[in-house]
Design a protein around this nucleic acid. Sequence first.
DNA 1: ATTTATGCAAATCATTTGCACATAG
DNA 2: CTATGTGCAAATGATTTGCATAAAT
Lengths: 133, 133
Amino acid sequence: MKKRNTLQKSIILDALKDFMGKHPTPNEVYEYVHEKHPSISRATVFRVLAGEVEDGEAQRVYAPDSSLRYEYGTRKHYHVSCRVCGKVEDVEMPYQYGLEEIAEGLNGFKVERHIVEFIGLCPDCVGNESENI
Amino acid sequence: MKKRNTLQKSIILDALKDFMGKHPTPNEVYEYVHEKHPSISRATVFRVLAGEVEDGEAQRVYAPDSSLRYEYGTRKHYHVSCRVCGKVEDVEMPYQYGLEEIAEGLNGFKVERHIVEFIGLCPDCVGNESENI
DNA sequence: ATTTATGCAAATCATTTGCACATAG
DNA sequence: CTATGTGCAAATGATTTGCATAAAT
């Protein structure tokens, strides 16, 4: 089961780098890649992105819109997302390792990492207080 | 647009109460409800659960498996989940309101709430160190 | 030569929606 | 009565999978 290097993999990894600071879905990566490389299939994009996470070259982003999202690299950080327009941004706040210790003490899990997702309204959507729940 | 009370709504809300401490998907709620009330449709379960969140009777749970999950009530708390078996548990730790202030200051969003998901291995799976990434 | 990776299309799976009928207020 | 809610089936959308072929080692 050793992995092979293919052109598709490097193209898709490069695409993810081009999205640096963003949190694209596999379909967004596909659209982007598709412009220059129309022969690369959607299925391959899904497969390669999942593989990059396994290989520690990318990480999943857990945005509350519950669809797959990825970003290049494995730096631990948090996200804010807008519940109206869905925009996701990085939050440059220190990773709270202390919380993991507390959780371990309480539930007996071996905690490896944690995710923090802030949810609210982005500056653009704060104005349009129409579509609110 | 005023809401009406229907038998379906109370049956589904009761079902969610029966899942207290759990974090069922709409389909799990549907299966459960379906046994005693086979005439209630899946679509209604989806609609009613979403409505209960609007009404502040239930809340969505954002587990990293990215599918809809709900739980009865609106108490703010965090979750741990096992990356091997998928088990989700509540973590009884104080809600970190302070983090929200920091995020607001950094990104300019109006932060309404946040989610913390701890990920690791549950006591059962810590032993079976075979299926690890 | 051997085995993993890709492309395509079909299959799945979760969730949503249109519409006619039922029913709560 | 009259608008909201429901059931059904079809529609959507995202992700996965089977399989034959291509490409990497």
